[in-house]
């Protein structure tokens, strides 16, 4: 579904991605984990074509995404921060995206699912952060895309909406969609992820199921396993700097 081949990306002197290779399959939820600055968002943005990689290539449904914009019609994206043109209302925003994508959409289903009926004619600037985030979710789901990308989707959502979003992700996974998720909430990962991709310092440090990760670290739960993983890497980098010295 998504093939990422040896992607590197630097911003100035800062090397953010240092050779990422992964294959993401259909019908799975992939959780991208890692400390701040590990390259999660950069990787997601590279897949979306917001960033352009320095080296390597990305194939989506066997199509190289370089200098290509049509492939984005099979992606639904829910970004971390929801900000829209202030003076449009929700229906106009959805109408605009529908106008742009020209594919069949089912926004009504998701408007009622996320309880957004009351927000229809309100200007977007008057909606609360959480409500805007729900509008973002509607935008991601309404075109029934094959790939769904969520960048820390739970930020600002109330517990009910969060629960509903997670249910929807599972449902879409069962419908054969590929779902990419970055998050810092480990319970979300435990509940949802079929595979965990742990990024550290621009490289993939671990890839496997949650169980797998917990077992390899000899720990009782995911939180402890991740902490263990981070501790190990800290020790390693200390050792390296000691050797270098």
């Amino acid at each position: 579904m998504i093939e990422i081949k040896n992607i590197t990306k630097a911003f100035g002197k800062l090397q953010v991605l240092k050779g990422i290779d992964i294959n993401l399959e259909k019908g799975k939820i992939y959780a991208f984990l890692g400390p701040n600055g590990s390259g999660k968002t950069t990787l997601i943005k590279t897949i979306l074509g917001l960033n352009q990689p320095d080296n390597g290539e990305i194939l989506i449904q066997n199509e190289n995404i370089k200098n290509n914009w049509q492939y984005k019609s099979c992606i639904g994206y829910m970004p971390q921060i929801a900000r829209f043109p202030e003076n449009l209302n929700m229906m106009e925003l959805l109408g605009m995206t529908r106008d742009i994508r020209k594919t069949a959409s089912d926004e009504e289903k998701y408007i009622s699912y996320f309880n957004l009926e009351g927000a229809r004619d309100k200007k977007l600037k008057n909606l609360s952060g959480g409500t805007k985030q729900k509008v973002n979710a509607v935008l991601a789901f309404m075109f029934n895309p094959d790939i769904l990308i969520f960048d820390e989707p739970s930020v600002g959502l109330d517990p009910v909406a969060h629960l509903k979003l997670k249910d929807l992700m599972r449902e879409e996974r069962d419908n054969g969609k590929t779902i990419l998720l970055t998050t810092h909430i480990l319970s979300e990962v435990e509940e949802l992820a079929d595979e965990v991709i742990f990024l550290l310092d621009g490289k993939i440090y671990f890839q496997g199921t949650v169980q797998n990760l917990v077992q390899t670290q000899n720990e009782s739960n995911l939180e402890r396993a991740i902490a263990q993983l981070l501790l190990q890497t800290e020790k390693k980098s200390k050792k390296l700097s000691f050797q270098a010295a």
Binding site: G49, Y71, K72, R83, P85
Partner: peptide
């Protein structure tokens, strides 16, 4: 500057940059 986040959302849609 203010439309930056929205521009990101648009960039994720199938439109020429």
């Amino acid at each position: 500057y203010n439309s930056r986040e929205f521009t990101e959302l648009l960039l994720a849609q199938p439109i020429k940059r």
